[in-house]
């Protein structure tokens, strides 16, 4: 369905200019989630939107080498692994599951350590959502490659 690239120079120029800004905004949304609207879900969705837009305007023949479909499952699994490790590592230090207050980062203190743990977990959620959404898109499109 979308094997070839889109045949209009205006669409190609605008999309190639737009994609880096979408990715920058996605990173801003993930890292600014403590102080405003945003967080892992929204940032992951915006990252997935940038990759899907690239696949739509370049066509899968050119866009698949840029971001291989095999990587999406790995991204989703790594995101879930980050979340799980942030839960399990405190258990090795005598705290309960998902208690970020005793992560082994000794140069930050109590409440700031919890804020850092929230940031780690949000990055995990963002990677997981990003990988899963691109995976679903690839599998829905992939019938007539």
């Amino acid at each position: 369905m979308i094997k070839q690239h889109y045949q209009s120079i205006i669409v190609q120029t605008i999309c190639s200019l737009l994609i880096p800004f979408i990715q920058l905004f996605a990173l801003y949304v993930i890292f600014h989630g403590h102080y405003g609207p945003g967080g892992g879900f929204q940032g992951g969705v915006l990252l997935a939107v940038s990759i899907i837009l690239q696949r739509l305007y370049l066509g899968t023949k050119i866009a698949h080498p840029k971001f291989p479909p095999k990587l999406t499952m790995a991204f989703a699994a790594v995101g879930l692994l980050i979340y799980g490790l942030a839960g399990i590592i405190p258990m090795a230090y005598g705290a309960s599951f998902l208690d970020y207050g005793s992560l082994p980062l000794f140069w930050v203190h109590d409440a700031e350590l919890r804020a850092l743990g929230i940031l780690i977990v949000e990055i995990g959620i963002g990677l997981g959502v990003f990988g899963t959404l691109v995976l679903i898109f690839d599998n829905l499109v992939g019938e007539r490659w």
Binding site: V129, L133, I136, L140
Partner: peptide, 12 residues
């Protein structure tokens, strides 16, 4: 987010 992944499975 769960609703969107549900929609994806339903479309598959």
């Amino acid at each position: 987010v769960v609703g969107l992944s549900l929609t994806g499975v339903a479309l598959a």
